[in-house]
Design a protein around this nucleic acid. Structure first.
Lengths: 244, 244
DNA sequence: CGGGGGGTTGAAGTGCTTCAAATGAAGTGG
DNA sequence: CCACTTCATTTGAAGCACTTCAACCCCCCG
């Protein structure tokens, strides 16, 4: 199997853990049950079945909570290679909604599939749990950002984190990445107004740091952006438990 | 065993799951290795041993991240009955620091203890994992609060959530609870300045909603506070998986 | 009695929001 | 093929929520 045939999840996990032939096979088998969802319509995953999760193989999704006054807070984005609703299978998670941002392709993973896979290959189980713990670390970092970083640093940090995540599945480089998000998405994830998002983006562009335009994020001064955001990728690149 | 002898964790889990004699015994056995920590000095849990977690039995702790510019964001507080560093045992978690707010009593739980307990009593395992997932839901709700609620609602929501958590372990009622936090703690958890925290508290007091004074939170108009905060305890009171 | 931590208050400044309006691109129906 | 909408983006102006700076108070403790 060549690299280009691998699923994004396989790429992601392989970046941190050397998986055996058997483990790779089990992992690919988890991708059997293919599903599609159209952009904009909620997947309402939590309502219908607590038993299934999804592995996102193409497209972007956001998970968010709506407030009574109509404002929305996006908790996290999922990009190819990410799990969706994993915790609702393993544990039990808070109810938030999932909305595909573009048309997406995902593999449905039943609870039984997952438990079978875990039983067969403990190393794979650990790798997947590592990915889940990484997601949690991102939520915590997100919390810190909203609480204690100003709008510029928050935006810079967000764009850099997304870049790191995408690079891991081969969808981005230090130069930039394709990004289907609107400025409204950025506003809802960063806890800002869309108008201010626009001004912040303009400022970052005029300072020669990064350009967000026409569905593309282009890093013009990656190092400068890292400095502005005080971005330390340690919480993303932490080596998995298997490497110890 | 009477209710007053039970550990806070036992009380908490019992509120959601009817535990058998055997399960109660296993749970109490997890509390054997008693430890004390003094207020103010970091427990630096993540550095020393990835193998142990703690069950907090008395006192308060906060988990936080420090930024390069010296500002601090508190991610969560732990009160009696809560786990500390549970995820660093089961999974692997982001590095944040733990600081006891007062002198605390905790039970050290080794990875092996926990796995043994889980093997003996699957229902207990599920109950503990449910508690972990509840903690996660709180972090998400916290994120939403900082992102999309104004200072008044944020404060009201925080005080109510804390009240619910404490009531579950018998340390609070609808009238209020004892609370060792300073206004600086409130500022760092809510993403505000301490000065503004003071003004917000004054305003809530003058509106006859809640009083925060001399280590005590007193609800004067619980319903009014709930309305202001748009507080919906669903994410806290979710029935555990065992009740399904 | 001096010092420090927690709390309280005022005044000034600013980062962000809200309101208002215009532009360009893409889609839709007549 | 063109009016008509719709949506994402852009910009300006006004307002306000929150921060920062600067005091001062109280109480406890050495």
């Amino acid at each position: 199997m060549t690299s280009s045939e691998q699923s994004p999840l396989t790429r992601k996990l392989s970046a941190f853990v050397a998986l055996s032939e058997v483990e790779l096979a089990v992992l690919e088998r988890l991708h059997q049950r293919r599903r599609s969802f159209v952009a904009g319509r909620d997947m309402v995953h939590q309502g219908q079945s607590d038993q299934a999760a999804y592995i996102l193989s193409a497209g972007w999704v956001c998970s968010y909570k709506l407030q009574a006054d109509g404002t929305r807070q996006i908790v996290d984005f999922q990009v190819p290679g990410d799990f969706l609703g994993l915790r609702s299978v393993l544990l039990r998670t808070s109810d938030h909604s999932f909305e595909p941002i573009v048309n997406i392709e995902a593999a449905e993973v039943l609870k039984s599939d997952l438990l079978d896979a875990f039983a067969q290959t403990p190393r794979l189980a650990t790798a997947i749990l590592w990915a889940a713990s990484r997601d949690e670390a991102m939520v915590v970092e997100h919390l810190v950002g909203i609480g204690r970083r100003d709008a510029d640093a928050r935006m810079a940090h967000f764009l850099l984190e997304l870049g790191s995540r995408l690079a891991l599945v081969g969808m981005g480089t230090k130069d930039g990445y394709d990004c289907p998000l609107t400025q409204y998405h950025l506003a809802d994830v960063l806890g800002l107004s869309a108008i201010h998002v626009n001004r912040v983006l303009r400022q970052l562009r005029e300072r020669g740091l990064v350009t967000f335009r026409d569905g593309r994020v282009s890093f013009e001064d990656h190092a400068g952006l890292v400095e502005l955001a005080e971005f330390d990728a340690a919480y993303l690149d932490q080596s998995g438990p298997l490497l110890k």
